[in-house]
Design a protein around this nucleic acid. Sequence first.
DNA 1: CCGTAAGCGAGACGGTACGTCACGTCTTCGG
DNA 2: CCGAAGACGTGACGTACCGTCTCGCTTACGG
Lengths: 216, 216, 216, 216
Amino acid sequence: MDVQKSAHAPSPTAERSRPDVTRRSQRSRQAIYEAALALVAEVGYPKTTIEGIAARAGVGKQTIYRWWSSKADVLLEAFLDLSEQAARAAGEDTHAIPDTGDLAADLKAVLRATVDELRDPRYEAPYRALAAEGVVNEQLGRDFLTKLLEPSLQLYVDRLRAAQEAGHVRPEADPRIALELFVAPLAQRWLQRSGPLSHAYTDTLVDYALHGLAPR
Amino acid sequence: MDVQKSAHAPSPTAERSRPDVTRRSQRSRQAIYEAALALVAEVGYPKTTIEGIAARAGVGKQTIYRWWSSKADVLLEAFLDLSEQAARAAGEDTHAIPDTGDLAADLKAVLRATVDELRDPRYEAPYRALAAEGVVNEQLGRDFLTKLLEPSLQLYVDRLRAAQEAGHVRPEADPRIALELFVAPLAQRWLQRSGPLSHAYTDTLVDYALHGLAPR
Amino acid sequence: MDVQKSAHAPSPTAERSRPDVTRRSQRSRQAIYEAALALVAEVGYPKTTIEGIAARAGVGKQTIYRWWSSKADVLLEAFLDLSEQAARAAGEDTHAIPDTGDLAADLKAVLRATVDELRDPRYEAPYRALAAEGVVNEQLGRDFLTKLLEPSLQLYVDRLRAAQEAGHVRPEADPRIALELFVAPLAQRWLQRSGPLSHAYTDTLVDYALHGLAPR
Amino acid sequence: MDVQKSAHAPSPTAERSRPDVTRRSQRSRQAIYEAALALVAEVGYPKTTIEGIAARAGVGKQTIYRWWSSKADVLLEAFLDLSEQAARAAGEDTHAIPDTGDLAADLKAVLRATVDELRDPRYEAPYRALAAEGVVNEQLGRDFLTKLLEPSLQLYVDRLRAAQEAGHVRPEADPRIALELFVAPLAQRWLQRSGPLSHAYTDTLVDYALHGLAPR
DNA sequence: CCGTAAGCGAGACGGTACGTCACGTCTTCGG
DNA sequence: CCGAAGACGTGACGTACCGTCTCGCTTACGG
C-alpha cells in the first residue's frame, strides 16, 4: 500500500520543515560568526543588527533567519564557536581544574586565569551581551547557562568533591552551593563593575570562602 | 526701582538649555513612571517602547525625551520612585539590618526578606531589566549601582563592622568583600536562574560564609 | 576565457544605489497613486501626508520614500498616471486641436473643453495642488511644466503655425507668445478665482486675442 | 488686598473674545513682519515656521497666535505692510497708470516697471509664497486678491476706460477681461517660469493684445 | 549527465519604533 | 492684562530594522 505516496514530504522527521543541514554553507556560517562578534565588539550589542551582520558577512538576511531565530541566538553560537576554537588552539584540558592536593592554591590559580580571560577584549563585549540578554530573555538565559556556564561550573563541583574525599572540605557541604561563594562574587563584580578585578581579590575570596569569616 | 532692568538672563548656571524644572508637570511624571513599570511588567523590557509609555501615560513623546535620555533612564527613575514610595509606606528603617547580637540570625532574616522581595512580581520585571541594561550600558550600570544597590550594600558593611567590633567576625576581614560571599550568590541565582531561591538556600549561604568550607 | 572574472560589478551606470526597478511592485504603485489622489481630493493637499497615503494604500512608508522624493513628487506622478489613463480611455487624439479651417471656432471648442475639465472635481484638487507647489518649488515647477503643460501648449503652437500658413494669423506673430493671450487668462482666473469660468468668457478671450482691442 | 477679585470675565462684548487692539504692541508687530519676510526670503516659505518667526522677532508664540490665524495670514499682512511702506517711500501715485494719450506706450511703461519689480529679490519670495498659498487656500486667495491685486487691476480698468472714451479701444470691449490679455501672460510666465521675462516680451504682449493676431 | 530542487546573495515589501520638529494651547511671571 | 517664555499633548517627519517574501544564480543529487 501507500502506492501513491507522491511524497513531496517536506519534513522527513521535523515538525516544522527545518532546512537541509547537509547543504548548509560553512563559508557563510563562519562569515556570520565573525561579523557578529566583530560588530558586537565594535558598536555594542544593541546597535548590532541582523542586517548589519548580513551585510558585513556578505550574506543574505534570509541565510541568517533560516538558521537562527534571533540576534541573541546568532551571538550565542558565535561565542560558543569562538570558545571551541580557543579551546582547540590551547590544547585539551585547558579549563580542567588542577588537583595538586592544595585546594586553595588550585582554586586561586583557576580564578586568576578567569580574571585574565574576563579582561580579554575579544571576550568582553559578546560575553556581557549574552549575560545581559540572558537576564531578560529566559530561553536564551537557559541556553547560555547550560551550554556555556554549566560545563565550567561542573569542573568546580568535581574538584570540590575530590577535596571532600581528601578531607579538605567539610563533608556535609554542598559543592554546587559552595562554589558560588567564590564564583558569584567574581561574576558580580565584573558584570556590575562594582569593584576592581584583581588576582588579590580572587585570592581573598578563596580564603574567605574556605575558612569563613567568623574567628576560629 | 529697577525700571530698566531688562535683564532676561536666561541661564544662571546651566550649560546647555535644560528645560525649566520648575514648570515640570508632576502629573505627567507620575503617569510616565506608572506606565513604564506597568509595561515592563506586562510585555517585558524589550517590547516596552517610548511610544508605548507615552501613549499609556497620555503624554507626548517629547515630554519623555525632554526629561530623560533613554528608555533605561526612565525605568531607573521609575523604579527609584517606586522604591521610595514603598519605603515611605513601610515606615522608616525598613532596610536597616537588625542587630540582635546574633550575626548569623540577623543576616538570615534580611536575606529571607530579600528573597521574598525578589519574587514580588511588581519588582521582578523592572529590576531584571535594569540589571540587564546595566551590564551592557556602562552609564546606566553605574547609576543603577550607586543609586539603588550601594545604599543597601552599605547596610551590610555597617552590620559587619559592628560584628567585628563585637568579636564575631575576624578583625582583618574586609566587610566590602565579605558581604559579597552571601549577596553575590543570591543575586547570581536570581539573575541567571541557575538554581532555586529559598530561605533554606540563603540560610546555607550565611552558614558557609561565616564558618567557611574547610573543616574546623 | 574569463574564467576568474569574479566581477560582481554592482552598478553599471548608476550614480548612487537606486533601487532595482525590475523588482518594483506595480500593485503598490497603483495603490499609492489612488490613495494620493483620493486624499488630496478629500482633505486637501496640505493635510495630505505621506503617512496617510501609505496607510490608505496599505503600504509601508519606506515604499514611498524608496521611489519618490516628496509628497509633491508622488502627486505629480499620480496625476500624470491619471492623465494617461484618461487619455487611453478616451481614444487617441483627445487633446489634438482640430483644424476645420476656422481658427477661432477651433480654439473656442478646445477652450470650452478645457473649462469643463478644470471643473471636474477629480482633477481640480490635485491640479491646484501641483500648480501651487510648482510656484514655490522650482524643481517641481519645471517637472510640472515639461511633463504636463508643455505637451498641451505645443498643440496650440502647431495649430497657430498651421493658421499662419493658411494666412489666418499674422506671419510675424510668435505662436509661443500668441497662445498665452487666451491660455494665460483662463489659467489665471481658475488659479486665483479672480472671475467666473464660462464658455462665454473663453469665447470672448479668443475674439479679443485674434482681432485685438484697438478699433479696426 | 483685592482678595476676592474673582472677576475674570473673559469676553466683554465680542462674540469670540478678540484681544484688546488698543493695547497691542506695535514694537512686536513690526518685529514679526520683519522676521516673517526675512525668513521667507532666506529659507523659503515651507521652512518658515511660526516658532521661527517668534524666536527671530524675540516674541512669544502666543503674541502671533493672538493676532493672526495662520502663517499665511502673517505673511500677507507683512507683505501688505511692506508694500505700503514702499509706496509711502516712493511718493503718492506710484502705481497709477500714466495717460499720455498713447495707450500702447503707457501700458508698456507700466508693464516694464512691473517686470522690474517682480525681479526684486525682496518681493519675489513672499509674493510667490502668497500666490501659491492662495491657489490652494481659498480664504487666503480671496484676501490676496482683494487686498493686493484688485487695487492694481482697477488702475488698468480705469486707463482702458479712458482709452475707450478717447476712441483708442473698441467700445464694446470689457476692460476687466481686456486687461487680462497682457497681465495674465506676464503673471503666468513669472509664476510658472515658463519663459523669460523681459521688456521686449511685455512690449510684444501689448502689441498683440491691442492689435490682435489676425492679419488686418 | 542532466534536470530539479535546495541554499544562497540580494533586496523590495508591509510594518513598528525611533528621535526630532512644529503645531496650537495653556500656564507662569514680570512689567 | 499684554507679552516673553516655554512646557504640554498631538501628530507628521524621514530613517533604521524588523521578519517575510520573491527573484535569479549556483551547486549537488538522484533518476
